[in-house]
Design a protein around this nucleic acid. Structure first.
Lengths: 195, 195
DNA sequence: GCTTTCAAGCTAATACACTTAGCCAACGAG
DNA sequence: CTCGTTGGCTAAGTGTATTAGCTTGAAAGC
């Protein structure tokens, strides 16, 4: 009875592959065990059930997203940084749809990976705040701006993945308009209507 | 053996109640049958399985959302209509989180309700385009603007429901800023950078 | 009023999926 | 070499969805 040499990271990586190719719904312990050449209960030696696996998937998703955005925005500032951030964000969601979808479900507080998840989401928020440096925002204004940016990015790719944009108008143009809109909004005077 | 007097709409309404109170994950045929005082296979006389039920739930969600936005924006125009639209959208998602979550999963093309679902999403898009009248947008420009608006709204409430806004800054202010940002972007010259 | 027909409930059975309990062999530390 | 730990396994239990086929309530037709 030889050993398969599994590990938690190995399992999560395989799960991420399934999610990216066949969708997040296709990630099951049964299929995972089958692909890893192992029986289902063996997975429990490394992960704490399905909920834990999903939380770990979310961790890899938000970590990969953070790394992609960080790599794209290093050394840039202002509008240049904003554009690079937005493109990297959407590009990651396109290349890893399953991992991105995994971060769209609330984490399980019982999972051992839950705290790690929260740390990584905080890191992503901090990174976005860094990207917004150069628009001379301070304190709560920066937080509000980061929320608006993240909302638009998340909403765009989420609707894209849902096929919610039925009309034939070009998606790239739509995305550029979204980024332009955010950029314009960041320059506009805050807390008042547009003049 | 008395009859329970079920119907498809009755079942879907009960499912929507479960989704709104305990989350979309809690909607199962077993629980549904229990609450309706009936055995599980009896549900199949009215709906075509779980996938069909979920698509029908999505239909009620997008229909309710459309009605809420329509009621809030009738008789308004320009920025006034935009603000009312955004508030009504977010308010509906807050009052019916389960129904709103139901429209975030792709519909099942095998479901009898699938075409109805597509019709209702088209109606919502048409309504948003109506709201944007008054910003003198035409053709593709209007479609792009509608996408940006929908992305931001969807992204904001989705992140809100995920608890993704960990920081203590006020959510109402953040939402107002998002609406201001969209409004400013709609006034900005299109297809070019901000001056 | 009786019959016929259909729809709406039911039981039974099947097929999966997740989870836990407990066993057994392989590997590493001493 | 031995022994403890770890990582695999089988077996069993629970919950869910789905299908097949039966049975009866209730309405439609004569």
């Amino acid at each position: 009875m030889p050993r398969a040499g599994l590990s938690a990271t190995h399992i999560v990586t395989e799960a991420a592959g399934i999610a990216d190719t066949d969708g997040i719904e296709a990630v099951s312990l049964a299929r995972l065990a089958g692909q890893l050449g192992v029986r289902v209960p063996s997975l429990y030696k490394h992960i704490d059930g399905l909920a834990d696996l999903r939380t770990r998937l979310a961790v890899t998703g938000v970590r990969g997203l953070t790394e992609a955005v960080a790599a794209a925005t290093v050394g840039r500032a202002g509008r240049d940084a904003l554009l690079a951030c937005c493109r990297a964000y959407r590009d990651y969601a396109h290349r890893h749809p399953g991992r991105y979808a995994a971060i769209q479900r609330p984490p399980d507080p019982h999972s051992p990976a839950d705290q790690e998840y929260r740390e990584h989401t905080d890191a992503l928020l901090a990174l976005v705040l860094t990207v917004l440096r150069g628009y001379d925002l301070d304190g709560d204004d920066a937080v509000h701006a980061a929320r608006v940016l993240r909302s638009t990015l998340h909403g765009f790719v989420a609707l894209e993945q849902l096929g919610g944009f039925g009309l034939p108008a070009d998606l790239e143009t739509s995305f550029d308009r979204a980024v332009d809109t955010i950029d314009a909004g960041l320059h506009a005077p805050r807390g008042k209507d547009t003049p």
